[in-house]
Nucleic acid binder design. Structure first.
Lengths: 351, 351
DNA sequence: AAGTCTTCTCGAATCGATTCGATCGATTCG
DNA sequence: CGAATCGATCGAATCGATTCGAGAAGACTT
């Protein structure tokens, strides 16, 4: 305790512990990691020395340099946290992902798209990266990651070379819902889509916007709707929330209103229903509404949304499994998930 | 030349780039970081060499070792992600935190309490840690962090030495709400509390459980209620959600029911209201309900909860600011936030 | 007693970059 | 014209640990 009074204000390192214990640094390392044959007596001496020096164990920074692994997986979401976490889908997915990664001892580093002022995607010590519903603008970042040899998994994103895809049948699923409406006799159908641009601008759904959009999921679902209703139009929401659905709904239902609405998320769908309620339009009698995701929303009662139930947790879990495999040197196959069409009480025959 | 020989399957490093560019590693480093005087010509040569070698820039792992900083801040939440993110409070707080840290270029690493199978709190290369509503069981982990010289900020946690506290007036706020009920003439009042143990067990609120509890926020709020109603009892929920509130409410309202309920979160409060609806008990006529948090909940209409509005985003932001200051070598002062009592339409005079 | 194994420990190289002080040439000042 | 100055570049030490091959000491066989 009195050994080195004040001439060593520096934090102890493994070498100091080893010196105090009278062993070499290599032996001390072995004693801590337990990765080699060390006599009990020696280990005890090392541990005692560590305690005396108030040494908290090997420095993770040094370990990650030496081992070439940091135990950290980056998750890039396109929105601000507040936006992204508003939708239960994202949370469910993140939960599956965290669960799978957690058991592998990997931590989750939250990142946002470059340029949003957050931590730079390229300077974080990550072992792998998950892209969640990200725009295609990430191309350059992905390239940078590849130069580093960091594997990339993308959930619902445009296919990119050397990026493992975890997909959802967005197009087919939406087409199924659209066909359902068609069979119910609806022909004046409108869309409420998720944001099409990184700016999250509201507004009418135009061909130009679709063409210029970087939002993969959104576009796929539009395609699905158009497989059935080729000229379907609608409005673009600024996010996935009930409020946005409400705003979109008010606009859609103001004049010359459709008999059915395809919303690209359950939250949006609920918002549209709220707008209908405001205007005295009955759902499903006067207006049919379908959603997407299949989340249970508090306060949706008495409505049971007609929607597409997607396996959100499973998607995240699959991404986690893929990452663990990739880090182990394997080459997992891409996965595609399918949504299940669930008929609720928000769609009915057109009148 | 011998550049593209196949005997080098290894990833290029700064030294290789420097060699190809015909400069020393130190100069190459300067060229990348821009932290020193380097001629334009040299920088260009280095960059060209990097491109030719497909070098993606300095390795973050090595940088963090050398600099002693990784740019990562750990966030420890007591629950599983799915649990924690269910409550809008946590998300709001996280948003404030992420916002503040993001502008400082710091990333957010999601961690769970030790023992929950997640990544070990002690092996992640973090510069600082935020504890969010964590139990006091973290003592040992906190000690370990301190040995490493990692500053710790705790949001609503029992005070610990060398841990910067960001607090909320949980006790006083709850007392204010309780007094409100008292003034309305209520005397048979019951509590619905947040979980008291890490196991998240439901059940009756007993003295033993309170005494053995590790949940700081929950206990503080109980104290506040008891400042007004010394012998108040109630039930413990297994989490902060409408479903849990519903379960708790059913139990509380089954027999010998109280005339008012103090729920420890808005979600729980809404659940209690739902339970009352089920049983044909009118709120606020037959039952007064107060919540805590002041979040806008979808589907709460027509109820306007009487609740305590807490500055969640600000709490997170304050933690972020504190961390940035701590990392800059400063010593920020602890902060205490106060909640604002907001009277809605869920409380009324006792009959 | 010589020889073969084990078991434990050590030395030295390595991971990839940063940074401080020194050097060297060229320009400028007195 | 010699000296002081300045900009650009380099060398070498350093951050803190891991790992592999080698060596030493003891246990066991024959």
């Amino acid at each position: 305790m009195e050994d080195r009074a004040s001439d060593k204000p520096t934090r102890p390192n493994l070498a100091a512990v080893a010196a105090l214990a009278g062993v070499s640094p290599s032996t001390a390392s072995l004693a801590f990691s337990g990765a080699g044959p060390v006599s009990d007596a020696t280990r005890a001496r090392v541990l005692a020395a560590a305690e005396q020096l108030n040494y908290g164990g090997p420095d993770p920074r040094a370990q990650s340099l030496r081992r070439g692994r940091s135990g950290i997986v980056g998750v890039v979401m396109e929105d601000r946290l507040r936006e992204a976490f508003r939708d239960p889908m994202n949370i469910a997915m993140l939960d599956g992902l965290a669960d799978e990664l957690g058991t592998a001892g990997l931590g989750l580093l939250l990142l946002t798209e470059p340029g949003s002022g957050g931590p730079e995607l390229s300077v974080a010590p990550m072992d792998a990266v998950v892209l969640v519903g990200c725009s295609t603008q990430l191309d350059k970042s992905v390239v940078a990651l590849h130069q580093r040899g960091i594997p990339v998994v993308a959930i619902e994103a445009e296919h990119m070379p050397d990026v493992l895809s975890i997909d959802l049948d967005n197009r087919d699923a939406t087409a199924t819902a659209a066909r359902h409406l068609q069979q119910l006799g609806h022909s004046r159908v409108a869309l409420v889509t998720l944001p099409l641009e990184p700016t999250h601008a509201r507004g009418e759904l135009t061909e130009e916007r679709i063409a210029g959009s970087t939002a993969f999921t959104s576009k796929e679902r539009i395609r699905g709707a158009r497989d059935v209703f080729p000229s379907i139009g609608g409005v673009v929401a600024a996010g996935s929330s009930v409020e946005e659905g409400l705003i979109a709904g008010r606009e859609l239902l103001a004049a010359d209103r459709p008999t059915a609405v395809i919303a690209q998320s359950d939250l949006l769908a609920l918002g549209v229903i709220r707008a209908a309620e405001e205007l005295g339009i009955r759902v499903p009698d006067d207006l049919s509404v379908v959603g997407f995701d299949g989340v249970r929303i508090e306060g949706a009662a008495p409505y049971e949304l007609t929607t597409l139930v997607q396996p959100a947790v499973e998607k995240g879990r699959a991404a986690g499994v893929a990452i663990v495999e990739l880090l182990a040197g394997g080459s997992p196959a891409p996965r595609g998930f399918t949504s299940e069409f669930r008929v609720g009480n928000t769609t009915a025959a057109a009148r």
